[in-house]
């Protein structure tokens, strides 16, 4: 279900005003939220519109960041080229994953993508000469762009706006409707003559492309990437953000990223037990609000039942 246009415009105006009122530490948190919103929405493109729940998007996102920082710092390529390579790298990786995974569905899809993501993690950890192993890669990309915290926020917000619009167009296009058809009834779409594996491959690659853009933004934002960027916890928290925001809502990604990152900031300032809070949040969401925060609120307000009651789309 889509948010209507006035809400979207109000949301965009709100996001544009954020850096004008907040101190710079919070501007950097807001930048992070925007970047992870893109990652979350890219997961939602797959989970919410094709019914395939992936657990490898942290790996695709992190690969993009690795490629950007490696080509920029080691090859010395100009930053626009490095960024394009990052997005391309993520898209190619997604294409490879898709080729292996689209014939599976449900839990097997989840497990296979989990294993594929772990291969990436293992390579980033062990291939020390290229990835720097546990130490990761560190560059001065952000410095060389000459961006302050507020300047970076503005750039990120602009890119996020464009990418969000692109994703919205993508899922609303005839192609996106076909994907929804596949989610609702794969067998029927196949017997109608649609090439289901091909559609899923394209959707997976497109989602990887969007996750790659998020990865590029993260590379600039963080100037550092390490195996923890591609590890399972990254894919898991991305998926949790998508679920909190509501699977299949697309714009819910902003809400999910905001809730989880704000929670992380709040919890981290009090205790070091963030993984436990993350786990408990996951359990609580799965038991009490699998349709996400927006979906739950909407259910409570209107008692309507036109939202997927299983939340995670099966």
């Amino acid at each position: 279900m889509m948010l209507s246009r006035p809400y979207a415009l109000a949301g965009a105006a709100f996001l544009a005003c954020v850096p004008l009122v907040l101190p710079s530490y919070y501007v950097s948190v807001a930048t992070q939220i925007l970047i992870f919103s893109v990652l979350t929405m890219s997961i939602d493109v797959l989970a919410g519109f094709t019914g395939r729940t992936p657990l490898c998007f942290g790996a695709i996102f992190g690969t993009s960041a690795y490629v950007v920082l490696y080509t920029f710092s080691v090859f010395g390529w100009p930053w626009p080229l490095a960024m394009i390579c990052g997005v391309l790298g993520a898209s190619l990786l997604a294409l490879l994953f898709a080729a292996l995974a689209v014939r599976t569905s449900g839990v097997y899809f989840l497990l296979l993508t989990l294993a594929l993501g772990l291969i990436v993690w293992g390579i980033c950890l062990r291939w020390t000469p290229v990835t720097g192993g546990e130490n990761g890669l560190r560059t001065e990309l952000r410095q060389s762009l000459g961006l302050s915290a507020r300047g970076l926020y503005a750039c990120v917000a602009l890119v996020v706006g464009v990418v969000t619009f692109a994703m919205w167009r993508f899922v609303r296009s005839p192609f996106g409707l076909t994907l929804r058809g596949i989610k609702e009834g794969e067998g029927r779409m196949a017997s109608l003559g649609y090439d289901v594996p091909l559609h899923l491959t394209i959707a997976f690659t497109a989602a990887g492309f969007f996750a790659g853009i998020a990865g590029v933004l993260y590379a600039v934002f963080n100037d550092f990437v390490s195996p923890s960027t591609v590890q399972l916890a990254q894919s898991v928290s991305g998926l949790l953000m998508a679920i909190v925001g509501g699977i299949g809502t697309l714009f819910g990604g902003f809400v999910g990223a905001f809730v989880i990152i704000a929670l992380e900031q709040a919890v981290s300032s009090v205790t070091e037990r963030w993984p436990m809070v993350l786990g408990l949040t996951f359990i609580a969401i799965m038991i009490f609000a699998p349709e996400g925060v927006i979906g739950k609120a909407r259910l409570l307000l209107t008692k309507s039942h036109n939202i997927d009651p299983d939340g995670v789309g099966r």
Binding site: V236, F282, I283
Partner: peptide
């Protein structure tokens, strides 16, 4: 609900 179970155990 398979996927909800899987993700709940992930939280655990």
């Amino acid at each position: 609900v398979e996927l909800r179970q899987v993700m709940l155990t992930l939280g655990v």
